[in-house]
Design a protein around this nucleic acid. Structure first.
Lengths: 341, 341
DNA sequence: CCAAATTTGATGTACGTAAATCAAAATCTG
DNA sequence: CAGATTTTGATTTACGTACATCAAATTTGG
């Protein structure tokens, strides 16, 4: 049987109450006694039974998720995953609330964060808009002792405790290599469709993409970035326009959302041309496009994993426990038409 | 507060004892009463507090993992992951034992399975060698009510409760598409290195690979499969030999283990040739080869996820609970040099 | 050395469920 | 309808930890 608090008490030659004081860092224990108990804990290899502890505490974790109000499949999916987590709340002892804020609007995000500073939940997860004022607001929360994790998009130079999202520079690099290799040694232009250079994940993807392109595929040149604000309508218009004007385009990297519009433009404009297309985020639309050959590869981040990871990290931080970074690493999925889930 | 057994009792107008009898399917409850209680459970939305239940039961799950005694990095990694799971045993209330059996030896595997049939652990996970006698042994265990999951390699037509591994046909198809597209429209021969056609995962990878190759990349022809028995020495010898004799080889698909030998052969024999190589399993060796350009892509199954998934499934089966198939799906990782973890 | 302050011990209750026991009530059998 | 059988109720203990209370012992300061 695994050792219990009673075993520690016996081993250290103190009472249960003292063991409890040491374990839960309550005051009123002399230094020497505390060390004696800690030694016993180490020696008999005691591990707290978390289930029993939670049961006794009856603790619940009030968490808040701040999500952008974007009308694209990825954000809808993220929303669904948060709702799924809410559904698991009774089992996980979490109490999750979501707040929607306008997308790409640092001021609105800051207002919500300041409001939460007063409310003091056990943890906050946010899809960050990368702006100095947001960073400052997050840093204030962290200074106040509230656990904060960024979700999907990180916050430059902030003190946030953790980032639950993919390595976007690596994602961009991967996209470049796939595109470059799929195109063989062909010569031509590559169009890049992004949401906004205001969000860090898009900037980073572009950065990674451009650096590998420049270093390893010199026969391909990148056109100025098209910013579609993750909006299908806007993306459609801009891409259709680019395809009409530039006949040298042989590849497209769509690093943001709003792929519905991109796909529509491709089907209208590029039936005669054979474009190689790499897009982000697996949705109903990108999936269908991958299967029918409109898109050649999809890079994906699993929203469910991100949300679950964020919750695990927030819990750990709220309890002052360590996070196993390797376990919380979010993988970049690469989907071809053959390995779709 | 979430409802408890007391709330059910009150709602159904019966005693706690009766509720307990219904919840834990103990005998001695009239049909009408049982229905009354079940109705109350549904209506107030009671969910059993698993933590409290496990605490009360003090139950542990004796599980057995049967692993092949193969000297390759992947099996070593799998072993490590099982050991890591053993380390987590006290927390997870599992009691995991591992048994090593000679690789590719159905008879030895059957002997172990029959032995376990007498011992009756709470669950068995095995890396299956795909043979009829193994299938029969597994089916007997299943008939006996012992939960069985296959790990990494599945068992044709058996009654095993679950398979914790990747979709190997999809893996082979993915490898074919990557190789085909990386090679552009080039014409030439593709060598395939496998471990043994005795294990189902290798057969399936080949099947998927060959079908996409035939359908979509007719300019590439597949050479007869080289069987290296997942052994680095043997793989080295066979690949070196093939490279010397066949000058038309422009690509290699290594679908099994023993990649150390393959890489050594490539570095010795193919310095002057530019081969496109796709291999399975991310190990120290394949990782280095990917980074230095000897290998172009690595398909990987995360052994840690497979082991943890197997344990979750065995637990669920042992408790007679449902498995969320979507959650237990093992993803196929695709690594280029840019997205290595 | 005494009083005050600090440290430690002893003990009990709670969390939600499992499981057992024994008594009481209801139902069935002939 | 008596007696046997089945069903139900009431109650208790246990799991391992958290947390609170009060008393006793020890240490500290003056």
């Amino acid at each position: 049987m695994r050792p219990t608090v009673h075993d520690i008490a016996a081993a250290a030659g103190v009472s249960l109450a003292t063991v409890d004081r040491v374990l839960n860092q309550r005051p009123g224990v002399r230094h020497v006694t505390r060390e004696k108990v800690e030694k016993a804990i180490r020696e008999i290899g005691y591990i707290r039974d978390v289930a029993a502890a939670n049961l006794a505490k009856g603790r619940t974790y009030p968490f808040v998720f701040i999500l952008p109000a974007s009308d694209n499949s990825f954000m809808h999916g993220l929303n669904d995953e948060v709702r799924a987590a809410v559904a698991r709340s009774p089992v996980e002892r979490t109490d999750i609330r979501t707040i929607e804020v306008p997308a790409f609007d640092p001021a609105a995000l800051v207002r919500v964060l300041e409001e939460l500073g007063r409310e003091r939940p056990s943890g906050i997860a946010l899809v960050a808009t990368d702006a100095p004022e947001v960073r400052d607001a997050v840093d204030r929360l962290v200074q106040d002792g509230i656990p904060v994790v960024t979700l999907v998009s990180d916050l430059t130079g902030s003190q946030r405790h953790h980032y639950a999202g993919v390595d976007n520079i690596a994602a961009g690099r991967t996209a470049a290599r796939l595109l470059g290799r799929f195109l063989g040694g062909a010569r031509g232009e590559i169009a890049v469709l992004a949401g906004s250079m205001l969000v860090r994940d898009h900037r980073e993807r572009l950065e990674g993409f451009a650096s590998v392109m420049a270093a390893e595929f010199p026969s391909l040149s990148i056109l100025p970035v098209i910013e579609g604000r993750d909006d299908p309508e806007m993306a459609h218009m801009l891409v259709a326009d680019a395809l009409s004007k530039k006949s040298g385009i042989i590849g497209i990297y769509s690093l943001g959302a709003g792929n519905r519009g991109l796909i529509r433009a491709l089907k209208e404009k590029a039936v005669d041309r054979s474009l190689t297309v790499i897009a982000h985020e697996l949705t109903t639309h990108t999936r269908a496009a991958l299967l029918d050959g409109t898109i050649d590869a999809i890079l994906n981040q699993n929203a469910g994993h991100e949300v679950r990871s964020a919750i695990r990290v927030l819990k750990a931080k709220a309890d002052g426990l360590a996070v196993i970074e390797a376990q919380e690493r979010i993988r970049l999925d690469i989907f071809l038409k053959d390995n779709l889930p």
